[in-house]
Amino acid sequence: MAFWQLTRLRVVYPIVLLFLLFVDGSLMSGMGGIFTAFPWHILPVLTLGWLFYAVQFDAETDMPFWLYVILIGVLFDMYYTGIFGTYTLAFVSSVAVMMQLHKVLDERLLSGLFMFLVGLIVYLLVTYVAGFITGVSSVGLTAFMLFEVMPTVILNVMIAAVGYYPVWSLFQFLR
């Protein structure tokens, strides 16, 4: 692999990751009335989706991936919650689970979407437990699973499925 190709991925990937950090918040801000219509609470997590694509398409071997995961978690904590550690732990644990599943699963779309589904559920459960411990969340686990996890999973898995092949093509171009 030529140096300019390696540099291209190392430059484009974190820029898109940072951009998606702000797109997540903008979507929630702009479409909050739709995403939080009672009783549903849907979270767009495009940032986690971008991390999933790096794991699925083996891009983490070409860049300092764990550094990006930790930095985006810290930025997420600072920008959105102000409680340090919640999203950092959520991103790290979710990506770790997806990387372990990636060793077992193949490169097909459905295997990748299953890997993203499990990673997304881990991400949501870590944030739920952290919110429950800090007293920010008071909803029961059943209501959380039914009214937040289910619609969030549906939205984000559909987005991941639509973007799967275009992002794969982008990663092939950047390599």
Rank of each mutant, 00 (worst) to 15 (best):
L75M: 11
F76E: 00
D77F: 08
Y79V: 15
Y79A: 11
Y79P: 08
Y80I: 12
T81K: 12
G82N: 05
G82P: 03
G82Y: 07
G82T: 05
G85R: 04
G85E: 07
T86L: 14
T88P: 04
T88N: 05
T88D: 09
A90G: 08
F91S: 01
F91W: 10
V92F: 09
V92Y: 02
V92I: 13
S93W: 05
S93Y: 04
S93F: 09
S94V: 02
V95M: 01
A96R: 02
M98Y: 00
M99W: 03
Q100A: 14
Q100F: 07
Q100K: 15
L101N: 01
H102A: 08
H102K: 15
H102T: 06
K103P: 05
K103Y: 11
K103M: 13
K103F: 12
K103Q: 14
V104M: 15
V104H: 13
D106K: 11
L109T: 00
L109R: 07
L109Q: 06
L109A: 05
L110F: 10
L110K: 12
L110A: 12
L110N: 13
G112F: 01
G112W: 01
L113K: 14
F116Q: 00
V118G: 04
V118R: 03
V118A: 05
L120K: 06
I121E: 02
Y123K: 10
L124W: 02
L124M: 10
L125T: 03
L125Q: 02
L125P: 01
V126G: 03
V126M: 05
V126D: 00
T127A: 11
T127W: 06
T127V: 15
Y128A: 01
A130C: 04
G131L: 15
F132A: 12
I133D: 01
I133Y: 04
T134W: 06
T134G: 10
T134P: 08
G135D: 01
G135P: 07
V136N: 14
S137W: 06
S137N: 14
S137A: 13
S138L: 13
V139D: 03
G140W: 07
L141N: 06
T142K: 13
T142H: 12
T142E: 09
A143C: 14
F144A: 05
F144H: 02
M145G: 05
F147D: 00
F147C: 03
F147H: 09
F147Q: 01
F147R: 06
F147W: 11
V149Y: 00
M150T: 15
M150C: 10
P151L: 09
T152N: 04
T152R: 07
T152I: 03
V153A: 07
V153I: 08
I154W: 07
I154S: 07
I154H: 07
L155M: 12
L155C: 11
N156G: 04
N156P: 08
N156E: 09
V157N: 04
V157W: 04
V157T: 12
M158Q: 14
A160N: 07
A161F: 09
A161D: 00
A161L: 08
V162Y: 05
V162D: 01
G163L: 14
Y164M: 09
Y164A: 03
Y164N: 07
Y164I: 05
Y165M: 15
Y165A: 12
Y165K: 15
P166I: 04
P166N: 12
V167S: 04
V167L: 14
V167N: 00
W168F: 15
S169F: 13
S169H: 11
S169I: 13
